[in-house]
Amino acid sequence: MRKGSLVFCTFLIAIAAYAIFAATGWSFKTKLFPLAVSIPLITLLVIQLLLMIGGKEQTGESATMDIDFSIEVPSEVARRRVFGIFGWIVGFIALVYLLGFPLTVPLFIFLYLKFQSNIGWLSTIAITVVTWGCFYLLFQSLVHIQFEAGVIQTWLGM
């Protein structure tokens, strides 16, 4: 966890450093605010990094006013599940890119319920059909959101 915190802090420092580097070439008006923000930001981050390297974990250092992740699940299982859910999220976005929203919605619901949640065939099909119906009715018929076609449809000229 400590190593991860250091890497995350270093990552933020890299972003702030990039911001300062990129802003130096801009006109005064353009760079004023980004520099006014990123210089104190990098200063605070470096102080934080040094405190983390030099000191012990401090009680009360963790964020108040924010959630804590659950710790009941063994870390190995938790890590596997985190990668799993990220995989589904990335898969969802990839499907939207390839097939567009209207096709992705039923396909994703079906795949997730069947292969991740292990729901029975009949329930999976019923929930998928109802979800797709609601999606169509709400977002396409009522709100008229224009969903981009997927690259596959575009490629096929559909």
Binding site: A16, A19, V37, S38, Q48, Q58, G60, E61, A63, T64
Partner: peptide, 28 residues
Amino acid sequence: LSGTTTRGQIKGFAMGLFGLLISTIGQE
């Protein structure tokens, strides 16, 4: 109010500034 210690507050201020920095993306 982001932390109960100095270090916690450094993180809070850094995050506030980081949010401000992200808001500068795009046309000035």
